[in-house]
Design a protein around this nucleic acid. Structure first.
Lengths: 344, 344
DNA sequence: CGGACAATTGGTAGCGCTACCATATTTTGG
DNA sequence: CCAAAATATGGTAGCGCTACCAATTGTCCG
């Protein structure tokens, strides 16, 4: 006679706690989830039993019974890109004191992979979903629209949110950085872009808008590649751009990795920064202000985006109507030595 | 009369598939998990029904019934440290084509946080656990020893594994970098260390061993701080070290972020690298070989550590005896311009 | 002081799946 | 050709928890 522990391995269950505390199982369940709905005396008794037995609720059983896992599904295109690493950190930090776990997926910038991961995540009935960008495939968008949980799109803002959005305008960022260089007297400003995911495309569009507004745009100033970004790629792109267009007097880089590669190459080739070449990056990694010369960049509020996404999702879970569905956290242009031709 | 869909929301269940395919539910279950144990005709019929209904198995129910979630629990001390980001990428990539999901936890370099997360993870009955380092607290170690799943400790090797280990010797790495600088003619070599987690401590110990072996050790050459590492911190530590010890002729940095900060500060202060100051880092981030001058570093096989940890865990899940419980993936000393006093 | 109402507590019946065992059905070997 | 063994399929009984509803007790007010 051992109907118990057929599989479980003998971990204490809610029934064990109930027996020890001399109450019904459901009361234990309530004491753990909604302590205020249980009398103080019983609650103490139950807490005692829980700690005596070392009881830990089985999350799988809980999720099955309530048709809802205490999981936030998070989809990012890259784990090594430090921008997303910081977003994810913001998410984890905001979630760490609640009951929610995080299920992190890496889409590798692939729409198909995103669809696949969405299926996997949905099969767990997550409490909320956080996805990157606003360029979901048709299938992915439909999965998200029909998901019976809050959905937050992060990193970008745009019209027509699936549910909620936190981010900023990459177009505006690209335009601001470019406009700043034009103001600083740069004329033949190149654009260096790697990966060229949708966000990079919009930064390029912002660059183009600023250049055209000043009557400076020239297609030959644009160098892009689908290859993933890296510091060494920045060096290579810059060499090519300079060979193609020797009169280049500045570069706006898709991101800071590329900008750093450009900076190092300028050192190596003894090209004066910011005199001969101005450099601006995007994201404003910590090292940009330490670099010599320090590098102008667009500071984005990545950690805050992660934090805010969690706040919005949790509010929605709690049944609150969102104050605003679209939150634009903006960006800050950090003007530094690398684009200060005259000054300093 | 609607005993069904009280909560579920109407997603098709295994029973729906079974009915449509005209078979028993258990046969559907088998067809999905062990297709080779079901006849071809039935299997096709079932696959048809699955795709017609858009059936996706409920992971929570599956985990409850089988007392085992298809989840790898992964604990790392940081998400933004690009070393761990790459380890995690190795893990995700190796797992992406199997049935397993990843549950990622961030311990923030805290033993207590690790214990807490282990509790959370264990409550899901994961298929395997991957934890960072070999310095678990007593409680954490006990939780891991009693976990009824494979456990892999990563990033380091050492005696007395909980179960399995993949990593390398940080002591040897620190010693190799330092010995290389000594060979190169550097004498007053400083050690710059941030965070000073156990791995950093062992790198420091390796540095000390090399210095002592050459009769060069001096406690005043060592500058450490518990503060998290960053490029700006590298600059600050270097300034302090130089102020404290003006005869400094080289620095071995705990990691590449610090080394980069030192490099930039040398540029800013017009200190010749490698002539006046030699610089060596640890981890060999991509940018180290692009930097000017390129920076000597210890290349560690981070992605491969993640990959290998998954391979070992999967073998253990499949019931195979591990070939070796401890896998040392070593490291490579990358000799570059920043420590080449004479050459180039 | 009785009845409406809130506050507590518990019982029942699953959630959707799989472990275990039983029951056909086919294959094998002597 | 038949028993034994292998193969293929299905039924039953939960896994550990919570939604739903019922039952009990205490509380308030006309």
């Amino acid at each position: 006679m051992r109907p118990r522990s057929r599989r479980g391995g003998g971990r204490p269950t809610i029934a064990d706690v109930a027996r020890l505390a001399g109450v019904g199982a459901i009361t234990v369940s309530r004491a753990l989830r909604e302590p205020e709905r249980v009398s103080t005396s019983l609650r103490l008794q139950i807490e005692r039993a829980v700690s005596d037995l070392g009881y830990v609720p089985d999350q799988n059983a809980r999720a099955l019974a309530s048709a809802r896992a205490e999981v936030f599904g998070v989809l990012v295109p890259s784990l090594t890109n430090s921008v997303f690493a910081e977003v994810v950190r913001g998410i984890y930090d905001s979630l760490s004191d609640g009951p929610f776990r995080v299920q992190l997926g890496n889409t590798h910038y692939s729409g198909l992979e995103e669809e696949r991961l969405l299926q996997v995540f949905l099969s767990q009935r997550p409490a909320a979903l956080i996805v990157s960008g606003i360029d979901q495939t048709k299938v992915a968008r439909s999965l998200l629209e029909n998901a019976d949980c809050p959905v937050v799109q992060i990193m970008e803002t745009g019209p027509d949110p699936i549910d909620m959005m936190v981010g900023f305008s990459h177009f505006d960022g690209g335009r601001a950085a470019t406009a700043h260089m034009i103001e600083g007297g740069y004329r033949r400003i190149g654009f260096l872009g790697a990966r060229m995911d949708p966000r990079s495309q919009r930064r390029l569009a912002g660059y183009r808008a600023a250049m055209e507004a000043a009557g400076l745009f020239d297609q030959r100033l644009v160098s892009t590649t689908p290859v993933p970004s890296s510091v060494s790629l920045g060096r290579d792109l810059f060499r090519d751009a300079l060979a193609k267009m020797p009169t280049l007097d500045g570069v706006f880089c898709n991101n800071d990795d590329l900008a750093l590669g450009v900076l190092f190459e300028c050192h190596r080739a003894s090209i004066a920064v910011p005199q001969s070449i101005g450099i601006a990056g995007f994201n404003d990694l910590d090292m940009m202000q330490v670099a010599f010369p320090s590098v102008t960049s667009i500071r984005t509020h990545r950690y805050e985006i992660g934090r805010q996404a969690v706040v919005m999702a949790q509010a929605a879970i709690a049944g609150e109507r969102p104050g605003q569905r679209i939150v634009d956290l903006g960006f800050d242009l950090q003007r530094r030595e690398s684009t200060a031709r005259s000054g300093r």
